[in-house]
Design a protein around this nucleic acid. Sequence first.
DNA 1: TCTGGGGTCCTAGGACCC
DNA 2: TCTGGGGTCCTAGGACCC
Length: 425
Amino acid sequence: MSKAPPVFGLIDCNSFYASCERVFRPDLAKVPIVVLSNNDGCVIARSYDAKPYVKMGEPYFQIKHKLKQHGIVLFSSNYALYGDMSERVMTLIESMVPADEVYSIDEAFVGLTGINDVDGLGRKIRSQLLLCTGIPVGVGIAHTKTLAKLANHTAKRLQAQTGGVVNICDPIKRDWVLRNTDVAEVWGVGRRMKLHLDGMGIKTAMDLAKADAWTLRKNFSVVIEKTARELAGTACLELDEPDLPKQEICCSRMFGKRLTELAPIKEAVATYVMRASEKLRGQNSLCKKIRVSIRTGMFNPDEAKYANGVLIEMPYPTDDVRLLTEAAVGAVERVFRPGFKYSKAEVMLVSLCQTGEYTDDLFASSQPVETTRVMAVLDEINGRWGRGMLRAASVPRNPDWGMRREMMSQSYTTRLDQLWTVNCR
DNA sequence: TCTGGGGTCCTAGGACCC
DNA sequence: TCTGGGGTCCTAGGACCC
């Protein structure tokens, strides 16, 4: 007897950041909302009713007038809020399904193999999430992850007809969706691949499902081959194991203003190292190499462009913020060139290994110093009193190069001094 | 004046080895 | 005039994702 095919679900929050803001602003239930990226740079989320007016990624300064004209309410990114809301959503999902994989801040794949009434469970998840967190979601169900993505896409596109839950395990429904979806909408098909596929006459998801998988592999890569096979119903991708440590950790930010001097760039890099090393210790990893890079603005044609980075090898794998900061700040001097207007720095921790997975080199000239307890105390104090309470002297408290976010909502759920208040009449 | 941030996976090519 | 073949490991860069 052949084994029953697996069943996957994809749960995706609708306009997640905008929905988070709306939860705490019921007065905006019928008002279009847009959320901006860091530094209030460009559009990264739009409520359903704002989508007709604003495109994803549009620079804020170019569309100010348009936003005002349509009465669209703006928010700066509030990641403390979105991260906390995400945790609530994911915790609830986890409690309702046999297996799950948190795929991004607003999406989770779930394993539904062996469940009798998957549609019923999909609707239940949807109503529970709305009731308990206030966040609306779409649910897609299918025999592969790529098809579940597609089902979810359809659930959102045809919200009114589908009630936000679409199951395409049935081949007739699956084929209807495949025929009626542009290949560019398929998970794994980006701008480049879309152009290639266009040239081969592959226009719809159905065309890709029917394309010869070996030809795709030969011409492009195994990635698109898997995508095609998944569309045709053969599962090539599994649910990922929970809580796998990241293989690289990155902290990069645009500065709130252009920087021309070395000193503030060093401050920024020290700040980013602080954040990156918190993440590193959070997943019990050590880092062997650290990459530091800086660059000027890339868009303005009148601005001189420069970008450079260096990779530094640490004497031994470490999670000590002091060693990493010293190495990174020293590296800034090596890449800094006077005369440019810098807009961004990036700190990347690479060649990570897990604590305890690596063996000291007895003959190395520089031997590890035991700092686990110092770092644990540091993290505990900062965990209790807020990030940056205890920090390297090179990290300023309120730098003038810091992030611009002029329209940020309160951190309703993560700060006692910013709790939601309700006026009772 | 002003255009985000944080990841993953795959591949090609170089270095090195026998 | 003539200059192998096969393998591993590492890294940079491309493409894609949300």
